[in-house]
Nucleic acid binder design. Sequence first.
DNA 1: ATCAACATACCAACTGGTCGGTTTGTCAAG
DNA 2: CTTGACAAACCGACCAGTTGGTATGTTGAT
Lengths: 209, 209
Amino acid sequence: MTPAKIAPRAQARNADQMVELLKQAATRQLILNGFAGLSIQRIVSEAGVSKGALFHHFPTKNHLIAAAFGDLLRTFEQELSNLGCRLRKGEIGRTAFVRHVVETFASDMFIGSMEIALAIRVEPDLSELVADSVNVWRAGLNAFWTDTFALDLPPEEARTHWAMASNLLRGHAFTSTFGVEPDAREKFILAFEQLILSKAAIKKAANPT
Amino acid sequence: MTPAKIAPRAQARNADQMVELLKQAATRQLILNGFAGLSIQRIVSEAGVSKGALFHHFPTKNHLIAAAFGDLLRTFEQELSNLGCRLRKGEIGRTAFVRHVVETFASDMFIGSMEIALAIRVEPDLSELVADSVNVWRAGLNAFWTDTFALDLPPEEARTHWAMASNLLRGHAFTSTFGVEPDAREKFILAFEQLILSKAAIKKAANPT
DNA sequence: ATCAACATACCAACTGGTCGGTTTGTCAAG
DNA sequence: CTTGACAAACCGACCAGTTGGTATGTTGAT
């Protein structure tokens, strides 16, 4: 008889789980090594699977990155929406709300997504793959503000105001990557609240629980 | 006699010019292909010189990137400072000033520098090489605001206010990479002027020419 | 003659894939 | 229940090209 051989690696059989595993591995490696350091080899090592498995589910690297990026944007949108709901229900105050929102934007995951977003401008293939996700994110981000606050301004001015709010958060997140002084975050939170939210009324939740 | 051979490539002999050439080639390739696509091969092709020449002047790729990044930051600082001077001398109005400042932040070169800035968080070597340039830029950016405008606020609050201004510009620049709606830039300019500069007085130039 | 400046060939490692083989789960037929 | 067929899922070896350098030789200015 042929001598016993080392058993080949077992092959899991759950496509959805594999896709999820790959997207999460990509996200972790993005945070760890940045967009420039995001390689297929690193992703499969992180996920503990083969390149063949990866390319079975995603035709190109860009497809995987786009899928992971789309998940990231949906996660942020969900987090923000939740924060808005909690504020409207009175579960948190306005300052705490701002603090949480700022933390979402200054998170490793958001910074990672910013890297992808900037890289997109020179990668037409990737840009096309993420176009829908970006549009949904933009609309969701605007809705987050308008669902949460009422502002006594004409619609176009209100839209610009909330775009400013989002840009301020992005700018702060960007600057946070170099580290912030100990109390600069807290100062930003208060200044943001004053500058952006002082004239905005919190909408009451339809059904406060 | 040995038959005529193709003459070896002529070797220019001007170190300063070569260094400048390499930094500018790196910057152009950064704008064209992003940080992830910024390779030695692309830089030397862009510059029309050899890798040997590059590595004679810069010990590693990161040294070149850091040098080019430092130049970029100094260029932005100079541009902004000039705009501030022109405003103070009455050569341009406040709205035009804001428009020019916004254009500086939304420029390809600034976006390229943002890519480097984000990548730095996962590259300790590069981070160390650019630390001084970043500190100088930060101080220069704050001085740009405080040299140009007087604000009736305590120093700490003024500092936070101007940090908000810069972050707003960064956030807008970031969002601009996806393209902006036709009049969104103009709306941003007006809203910025209203939100950030409405309570700031333009300092008069010491010697209006 | 000397050395900084520059060129070119070479290197090991890595890149995003491709490809042939193996494994696994499902289904239908007996 | 068993068996065989099938295709999705997965593996790992292979591929051509690229990466950031290194080593050696040549050139040009003094």
